[in-house]
Amino acid sequence: MNPVNYLYLSALLFTIGASGVLIRRNAIVVFMCVELMLNACNLAFVTFSRMHGNLDGQIIAFFTMVVAAAEVVVGLAIIVSLFRSRHSASVDDASLMKL
């Protein structure tokens, strides 16, 4: 199978993620869309790695996963505390630095 198709898939996933970030208000959904974008990138990296026959892309994919995991930890904590203080998970409600 032609690896270029994976790239198309990656682009599609990235676009879905990006539009989700822009359109959705729920912080959890936005967050998941960001994850989707990250994973789209991972897919692209791995694909390129396969196409060019060296392992750099795969290594970077691992890094990205680590970053994404760290981000989940911090991001979810922020979202939870935001929800606790504002009783809402909408990103638009959190437009000010202070409560």
Binding site: V30, D92, A94, S95, L96, M97
Partner: peptide, 13 residues
């Protein structure tokens, strides 16, 4: 600088 994360995201994209 309106504080809406989405509008920052738009400008980034």
């Amino acid at each position: 600088q309106n504080g809406y994360a989405r509008s920052y995201a738009v400008s980034m994209f």
